[in-house]
């Protein structure tokens, strides 16, 4: 899904086109998920926040003022719900990072299937290593990059809505964070 299609897809979904809705889910759910993950909620809380965001989006579908910015609407709604969870501190359980590394999804994405082949073992190792280094970045960098690496890549407007940071600061922060990550990888001899 191209970001420029979002407005038209929202309109089609309003008009009753279930396939358009599905395309919106395909294109925007990785963004919603990345916002949840950026805020380090427990799995249970994260799943509920994700659902709340989509239920609200469905509910507001025909009433969203700028349909072409539906991604930002979803990102901002998700962020808002994440902050509520964090505010009710009793619900806050930080994600156990090693567990994330061990988690294997039952549904194999094409990227995951790559890891199945034996010759890809080295690549698999590299992916895990890269992810490990990413997880040890400072909180701000980890948050920003987690949202930026949603697939398909979000627009800066969406990243801004997802994290409550100014659009103009995303570019410079991104460069700093990627430079820092690369420095870590170089230090570990991985680059």
């Amino acid at each position: 899904m191209d970001r420029s299609d979002v407005g038209a897809l929202v309109q089609s979904a309003v008009d009753g086109d279930a396939a358009a809705w599905k395309a919106l889910v395909e294109g925007l759910s990785p963004l919603v998920w990345s916002v949840v993950r950026a805020h380090r909620l427990s799995d249970a809380d994260g799943h509920e926040v994700y659902q709340t965001a989509w239920f609200r989006f469905a509910q507001h579908l025909g009433r969203i003022r700028e349909p072409d910015k539906a991604g930002s609407w979803l990102a901002s709604t998700t962020r808002h719900e994440c902050l509520k969870v964090i505010k009710s501190a009793k619900r806050l359980t930080p994600t156990d990072d090693p567990q994330v590394l061990d988690r294997v999804s039952e549904d194999r994405t094409p990227e995951q299937s790559v890891l199945d082949s034996e010759e890809a073992a080295a690549q698999s190792e590299r992916v895990r290593f890269l992810w490990q280094e990413f997880e040890t970045l400072g909180e701000r960098c980890r948050q920003l990059l987690r949202v930026l690496i949603a697939s398909p890549p979000p627009s800066y407007q969406e990243v801004s809505a997802a994290l409550g940071i100014a659009v103009g600061s995303i570019g410079p922060m991104r460069q700093r964070c990627l430079r820092r990550l690369r420095a870590k990888l170089i230090a570990r001899g991985a680059l």
């Binding site: 279930a18 998920w33 469905a58 990227e111 992916v127 990413f134 690496i149």
Partner: peptide, 29 residues
């Protein structure tokens, strides 16, 4: 960044169950 994006798709994808729930949420509109 591209490599990291691929790593996220492998190690931290949207759970299939959640994707399905979002698709079904269309009925709520």
């Amino acid at each position: 960044e591209d490599e990291l994006r691929q790593a996220a798709a492998i190690l931290d994808p949207v759970p299939a169950e959640l994707r399905r729930i979002a698709v079904e949420a269309y009925a709520l509109h």
